[in-house]
Amino acid sequence: MKTIYEDLNKRFTMSGYKQQRDDLAFVTVDKDQLVNAITYLKDYHKFTHLAFVTAVDWLEENEFQITYLLHNYELKVDLGLKVRLDRDNPTMDTIHHLWKQARVYQRELHEMFGIDFPGSPGVNDPMILESWEGPPPMRRDFDTKKYSEETYDHRERQHIEPEDHLRKQLYPED
């Protein structure tokens, strides 16, 4: 793992290498070089499996973090690549040409966090939230309670006990 990181560090701007376990490490990559770094890892270091792509909202620092987790089936190690984006204008390069499932992850991130991936097929199609008009719901500043109170009407419901109802139906004179 360390040797792979040293090789990567020669070619790309990287920081914050952390060995979490023997078979897992995380590293932060510069935003512009991420796709190049992933392509290099896939082609030369046999990191051929993309486990997931996810985003973490660091609201206090006004940044999004996107984590790409790659797996190498020969060395049996996982490597997490992290990239930091500006939260006000989150745009990231797409990797759908490397793995076919990447477009689904990118579509979800676009919907849930509002991170744009220009060029990713179907990235603007709604995945889960059809006809949603509010802000992206997985952001930390999205207040679920406030949104539901503003958007949906409160419905007064009449509570009927089944036992009372049946009694009234069967024995109306009681």
């Binding site: 979490q20 997931f52 984590t67 987790l69």
Partner: peptide, 20 residues
């Protein structure tokens, strides 16, 4: 503070949890 990813073999394959 920290982050980790653990995985296990479910009936459908690699199942994983990434916790920050």
């Amino acid at each position: 503070a920290g982050e980790t990813y653990v995985k296990a073999e479910s009936t459908r394959g690699e199942y994983g949890y990434y916790i920050v």
